[in-house]
Design a protein around this nucleic acid. Structure first.
Lengths: 126, 126
DNA sequence: ATTTGACTTAGAGTGCACTCGAAGTCTTAT
DNA sequence: ATAAGACTTCGAGTGCACTCTAAGTCAAAT
């Protein structure tokens, strides 16, 4: 349920990001959010649109195998303010290289799998 | 076909595949080898070239996130003989779809990371 | 008024894939 | 002859990232 003030309940964010509410709370505890999420009068989390955008980006980092601890490093830099932006850029550039390497390795493995598949298909169709 | 009968010590296979000797023994214990590896008179493992080729392919399956249990399923089919080759092909085709999906997701995430990188680079160069 | 369901916390448990330790045997090098 | 180093087995330990439990609060729905 969204309120008129453009905030999102934890279940909304779960639905939007594909994370479970457990995982969202875990991420916050683990220091992966840029700040503690706002609470309602009944102390329920109210995610802003910016919070949702951050969680979405965070899932991109995670889906490219950035460890939780590295995400936390990034967040801690971000919390220290504008003068860490060069360090954050460097962190992202290093991660980018890792991602490219991962995609390349996957692609090489895919070629090997395709080769094996081709031998099976030969055996069946011949 | 050459019958050079070349065999490899576990340390050789480790060097060739990038796996540790611990992991190679673990894989054998976990039922990921097509058969128990031959032993020397001093009961040390002697991997054949075919064994090394299998370990190499196995690392391709693992590097594309096929779970150990799925690799074991594949191996158990292979051990049951020729009449399981259609099932093995199907298993590989399903895995192939997963790999393609993974690469696509990684590529999408990479685009998001690149977008973020671009915003940092703007901020720095401006 | 009661039930349903979402939410809260701290902390424990799970599953995966290694990874290592202990205690021992055997081979090779000095 | 001694030491170094590779190997063996069984089983325990590790690290990561969740994932769930228990015990409780709160608010809307029936």
């Amino acid at each position: 349920m969204t309120t008129s003030a453009q905030s999102f309940a934890i279940s909304d964010v779960a639905a939007l990001t594909g994370l479970s509410t457990h995982t969202l709370r875990y991420y916050e505890r683990a220091g992966l959010m840029l700040h503690p999420i706002d609470r309602s009068s009944t102390s329920q989390r109210q995610y802003s649109e910016a919070d949702v955008a951050w969680v979405t980006f965070l899932t991109k980092l995670r889906s490219t195998a950035m460890p939780i601890a590295r995400v936390r490093d990034y967040v801690e830099l971000a919390r220290r303010g504008e003068d860490t932006s060069a360090a954050r850029l460097e962190l992202l550039l290093i991660h980018r290289m890792n991602v490219v390497a991962q995609v390349e390795e996957m692609t090489r493995s895919l070629a090997a799998i395709d080769f094996k598949i081709a031998t099976y298909q030969e055996r069946i169709t011949v």
